[in-house]
Amino acid sequence: MNSEFTIAVHSLVLLAYRPDHMATSDMIAHNVCTHPARVRKVMALLRKQGYVAAKEGTGGGFLLNCAPDQVTLAEIYRLTSMGSVKPNWCSGDVEQECMVACNMASVMDQLFAGAEKHLIDYFNASTIQDVLKQVREKAAK
């Protein structure tokens, strides 16, 4: 899985925590512990899909533009990371005569697709609001 998913969830939870406050990419980056350019890339994707609104220029930043209890982690995963469970490396070669080598890539594709389906089903059960609730519970301890 790539880090865009984590950056997106973290950013949305941060904005949900402060729904009436605009956050700059620098402020979000500091909170996420990553470079502001990476945050801007992810926020542009979230903005394009309507999850956040943005105001450019001095005094600008990002504002939550969705109901945190309606946005599932599965939606954010599909947006940022779909297909990332499968590694870039591919085993097997269809041209080889070995039964294992010529069928392994296809079998592994099915296994990774099944694993990703389970991951999406799991993420479907949690919303941005659920993650914020868990953060608040951890902070209260």
Rank of each mutant, 00 (worst) to 15 (best):
P68L: 08
N103H: 15
M82V: 03
N124M: 12
M27W: 09
W89A: 15
Q70F: 08
L111S: 08
E4L: 01
C33P: 00
V9R: 03
R40M: 11
A8C: 07
R40V: 05
V42N: 04
V9L: 06
G114T: 06
V94A: 13
V107A: 11
I28S: 05
D93V: 07
V42F: 02
I7K: 11
H118M: 15
V13Y: 02
E75Q: 08
G50T: 02
S81I: 00
Q49W: 05
A23S: 09
D121M: 07
R78P: 00
L111D: 09
L63R: 15
S81Y: 02
A16H: 02
K138S: 13
S106E: 14
R18Q: 09
H35K: 15
A105F: 07
H10M: 06
F123V: 00
H21V: 08
L45S: 06
H21Y: 10
L64Q: 12
D93G: 06
K55D: 05
H21R: 15
S91P: 02
D20Q: 12
T80D: 03
E116V: 02
G83W: 04
A37W: 03
K86H: 08
R136S: 13
Q129E: 06
A101P: 00
S81F: 03
H30P: 00
N103M: 11
M82Y: 07
E95C: 05
G59H: 10
T127V: 09
S81C: 12
H35V: 07
V100F: 15
R40Y: 04
I76D: 00
Q96K: 14
